[in-house]
Design a protein around this nucleic acid. Sequence first.
DNA 1: AGATTTTTCTTTCATCGTGCAATCAAAGTC
DNA 2: GACTTTGATTGCACGATGAAAGAAAAATCT
Lengths: 357, 357
Amino acid sequence: MSAATVSRAVDHLVEAGVVREGAAVVAGTRGRRAVTLDLDASRGVVVGVDLGATSTRLLAADLVATPVAVRELDTATGLDAPDLAAWLAELVLALAEGSAPLLAVSLGLPGAVQSDGPVVTNANNLPQVEDPAFVRVLRERLGVDLHVLNDADLALLGEQSFGAARGAAAAAILTFGTGLGGALARQGVLVQGPHGVVGEFGQLPVGPLGTRLEHMVTGPGIMRRAAEAGLALSSPADLFTSTAPAVASMRAQFDGALVIALTAVTVAAEPDVLVLGGRLAPSLAPHLPAYEAAVAHHVHCTPRLAPAALGSYSGACGAVVAALRGCYRDLGVDEDALGDVPMGAALDLDALEAVRA
Amino acid sequence: MSAATVSRAVDHLVEAGVVREGAAVVAGTRGRRAVTLDLDASRGVVVGVDLGATSTRLLAADLVATPVAVRELDTATGLDAPDLAAWLAELVLALAEGSAPLLAVSLGLPGAVQSDGPVVTNANNLPQVEDPAFVRVLRERLGVDLHVLNDADLALLGEQSFGAARGAAAAAILTFGTGLGGALARQGVLVQGPHGVVGEFGQLPVGPLGTRLEHMVTGPGIMRRAAEAGLALSSPADLFTSTAPAVASMRAQFDGALVIALTAVTVAAEPDVLVLGGRLAPSLAPHLPAYEAAVAHHVHCTPRLAPAALGSYSGACGAVVAALRGCYRDLGVDEDALGDVPMGAALDLDALEAVRA
DNA sequence: AGATTTTTCTTTCATCGTGCAATCAAAGTC
DNA sequence: GACTTTGATTGCACGATGAAAGAAAAATCT
């Protein structure tokens, strides 16, 4: 694009009020000063929501992804679909209250989200959200643009934008929580199928008697299998700290299943970075080099394994990014350019901690 | 695009000699007859080559993919890299001899092809091609555009263009030959990573003691495991015909591994069609509904399983498509439009049989 | 201080691709 | 032979673009 075209484009944006001229740059070269441009970030806020099976996180941010408010609480699992939607809508509106007008909301759910509808399936850990009434009531109550996506997809989006997968063209995530979630991205965009099963590597029947991979590497499955083996683990994390011989055998099974999952992700998308998230990720972190070596034994090109840099907030941060993309798309931003969400300050755990207070 | 713009664009193409007006259409509606346009398909030929570990197939076609000549012979496995390249170049040039000038050649290899170079790795079943001299000598001898790709990638391209995956936006293939090959395509384009490991589901360590999936579902692996179990199979196909109880147990292991592979492909790319190719595919064909049901048990959206419609020629046909895309790209065709290679008649097994005579 | 240089932004002008509408061309129907 | 229908082409206006020239703002030189 020539300078002339840029100049004219900026004129239009300033006229539309989306952008305004900022402070002149102070640098000491000679010649006329360049004019800085600021997005009018305070024209509105978006809210990203990560509705988990056990806990829910909400993050409000302005139009350059600077966090404004954050909230974390237990999911109201006892409610039915319409009540859960009303409960969530109330939280979103309360969080955005007092800030600039709420422009868009993105919501991550622990289930497969079909691209049309959206229709939610496979939400075994929070079945209420499969009821079409849930999304319908939520839409009505919020009264703004609502995007619904899979929680692992959003977690990957968050880590790609601000976290461990920043700058990686191809990236993937596996989240070890109540279930095993997964997502893939290539050339900076999420790989999404019409039925939302892309990344569901937990469904691979790799265990004895066709046991699914998910049951071998996530919390409830580990606890159940330990109980069956007569082992008393106080938490899944014990698998990595205990030195009992019986635990070692379970640990070997876990490792085998995990390496299958990591290898499957590698040959599915050849990511530069494979992010590990979820409650179990901190326990895995010390062993990542060993897992990397194990994968390298099977494929000659291994992704870098990295723990989620945004911790339990990957999904909420990703939801903010998804909501912002919706806003920018409405402003007429080209589809190919949506990958670059404008960012004010860095969005990291410190920034989140700051707005919590 | 308005009619006016199309008219002007066609003027340019006719002037450039790429296209010419064809016979007037004969239909019986009233009004002026539409003008048909023909690509000048005889301006050149391309050759697609599928260099396998045991046999090699070459297919020459004109610029609208109409087959011109075909050849199938045993691979000269005894030769070193430069001699193998010379042998192959001779075959390609001989096949194109007498036809219009040779414009491009595409070559499929049983190994991972890195996008830069091209560098070939993991070609365990035909190690000569890993030697950089192979591609270099081949390029020199041919003197035309040469594209080198993975054989499974090309087989999928062939099946997408002319075979079982025709019209499917998302498709995948698994080829059961000397090794297990695989490839994925989304939105009509192949998923290719920089190291060429995408689709290598044979590397998944799913068997007992970390045995790779490849060893459990392809010919040599089956024969070796049968021999270890004291079974005398005369060919891998016996696994599907024999009724001996000892065979049944091996068959169950095979099925388990296959279902893992199918499920992995499904969650990797969510294909509409999953094509099964390679020498073992005919043996699998009668059991596809059963495998489909087994996969459906694990993921709620199952691809349609289909045997390769182009049989052992999927790869050669795909290579022709890849070569044609190279030609059209050189002509200035937009990258997004390359998916639609112009086709004269249908390219199927009957058409290939016709040019063989 | 005033002239000069450097850097940045804007304006002018010619070009190109596009779509709408009118026109031309070719065929069938009345 | 006139009318109708269908398809292809031309005339015209519009908008986006880039090269080049010009204007603005700051530092440096004389």
